[in-house]
């Protein structure tokens, strides 16, 4: 019952066999060993599993891997440059203490990149509104909002 799919993840094409019911998040974590994408709920409420599919921020826990056959997926592992330079969003989370336990952080950053692309000049309130689907239990969100604002400013300058 395995089906063969080819998914380009962070620029590399991967051909693999999956069960039709395999969730994208499990495909990434279990088959490709890309464990930076996390699972935080069963109900599409927490955003921990956020990745980009063909450029859009989506929930990899409510997407089947097989639906991504032929598509481009970007995960947290694909944010930094090949030389190890952090993406502005990664640097901003570090500099603004936008993370504590780090578990929600990959999904939060992938959502944030989507927000910045859609609304480069978002106000703090707009950033908060757009983060409605990402839960964090550690930070109280204040430094996450600051991180995203800082990254947006940095990306606008560069």
């Amino acid at each position: 019952m395995g089906e063969t799919i080819t998914v380009t993840v962070n620029g590399t094409a991967h051909t693999a066999e999956v069960e039709p019911r395999t969730l994208l998040v499990h495909f990434l974590r279990e088959q490709l060993n890309l464990t930076g994408t996390h699972i935080g709920c069963d109900t599409s409420t927490c955003g921990c599993c956020t990745v980009h599919v063909d450029g859009d921020a989506v929930l990899s826990c409510s997407t089947l891997a097989i639906q991504c056959d032929g598509r481009e997926v970007r995960t947290v592992e694909g944010l930094q440059s090949e030389d190890g330079t952090l993406h502005p969003i990664q640097q901003a989370f570090h500099e603004n203490h936008g993370l504590q336990c780090g578990y929600c952080t990959p999904g939060m950053m992938m959502a944030a990149v989507g927000i910045i692309e859609q609304q480069p000049n978002a106000t703090d309130d707009e950033i908060r509104a757009a983060l409605e689907g990402n839960l964090c239990r550690c930070t109280g969100y204040q430094n996450i909002v600051a991180s995203i604002r800082a990254a947006a400013d940095q990306m606008a300058r560069s």
Binding site: T37, V76, E77, L86, H94, E95, L99, T105, P106
Partner: peptide, 17 residues
């Protein structure tokens, strides 16, 4: 700034799962 952060922002944290 925290020395823990880099592994978490790059997805290289190692949680039990």
């Amino acid at each position: 700034l925290r020395k823990e952060d880099r592994k978490f922002v790059t997805g290289e944290g190692r949680y039990v799962d």
